[in-house]
C-alpha cells in the first residue's frame, strides 16, 4: 500500500508534465493561459470567502461552547463499536447536507488536531471521496422537475458509506492507529 504514497508524490509533477507538453505540442501559449486560469482561481477564492467566514464562525461557536464534545461523548458508544472516531460524526453527517458547512467543520478539526494527525489525515481522505448528496440531488432533480428519484438516494448513500469505510481502512494501513 506504500505505492499510494508514491502516487501522492508523483501525481502533481505528472499532471504538470502531461498538461504542459500537450499544451506546447498544440501550440498553446501556455504561460498566458496559466495566468488567465490563475485569475479564475483568485476569483473563486474571493467568492467563497464570505461563506467560509460565516460558517467557520458558527462552527467556532459550537466548538467553544462544548456542544461538539458533548455530542461526540453521547454518540461514542455506538461509533466505538465500529472503531470510528466519534469526533468525526458531526463532519460525516454535515458532509451529506452542505459542502461549505462541512468545510467549516473540516477546518475546525484541522485547527483542533492538526492536518498531520491521525484524525487530520482521515478527514482529508474522507472529504475527497464523499459528496453533498442531499444538496446535489435536490439541485439536479429540481432542475428537470423530477419528484420520484427512485433508488438514487440509497445508491448514493451506499457509495458514500463505502468511501468512508475505505478511508478508515486505508488510513489505518498506511499511518497506523487513527487516535
Amino acid at each position: 500500500m506504500q505505492i499510494l504514497i508514491v502516487i501522492s508524490n508523483l501525481m502533481l509533477p505528472l499532471v504538470f508534465v502531461l498538461i504542459l507538453s500537450y499544451g506546447i505540442s498544440k501550440g498553446v501559449k501556455v504561460y498566458d493561459a496559466f495566468i488567465e486560469g490563475a485569475k479564475d482561481g483568485m476569483r473563486c477564492a474571493v467568492d467563497i470567502m464570505p461563506t467560509l467566514i460565516g460558517l467557520m464562525m458558527a462552527v467556532g461557536i459550537l466548538r467553544a461552547s462544548g456542544a461538539l464534545d458533548i455530542f461526540s461523548r453521547i454518540i461514542s458508544p455506538i461509533t466505538d463499536l465500529i472503531h470510528y472516531p466519534s469526533e468525526l460524526v458531526p463532519l460525516t453527517l454535515m458532509r451529506l447536507v452542505s459542502s461549505s458547512a462541512s468545510t467549516g467543520i473540516l477546518l475546525d478539526l484541522f485547527k483542533q488536531y492538526g492536518p498531520d494527525s491521525g484524525i487530520g489525515r482521515l478527514v482529508s481522505v474522507m472529504m475527497s471521496c464523499t459528496e453533498t448528496v442531499f444538496y446535489t440531488m435536490s439541485v439536479y432533480f429540481m432542475s428537470v422537475k423530477i419528484t420520484k428519484t427512485r433508488y438514487t438516494l440509497p445508491g448514493a448513500l451506499i457509495a458514500n458509506f463505502a468511501g468512508v469505510l475505505a478511508s478508515v481502512f486505508i488510513c489505518k494501513i498506511i499511518w497506523g492507529q487513527i487516535r
Binding site: I3, S8, L12, P115, A166
Partner: peptide
C-alpha cells in the same frame, strides 16, 4: 490547499489514499 494553510508538513500525501477511497466509493455506487 486547506491542509497547506494549516501548515501540514506534506499537504499532498493524501492524494494516493484519497484516490483509493474515491475509486472504492465509485465502484460501490
Amino acid at each position: 490547499a486547506y491542509r497547506s494553510s494549516f501548515n501540514s508538513a506534506n499537504p499532498s500525501e493524501i492524494i494516493g489514499p484519497g484516490l483509493f477511497a474515491t475509486l472504492v466509493s465509485t465502484a460501490a455506487g
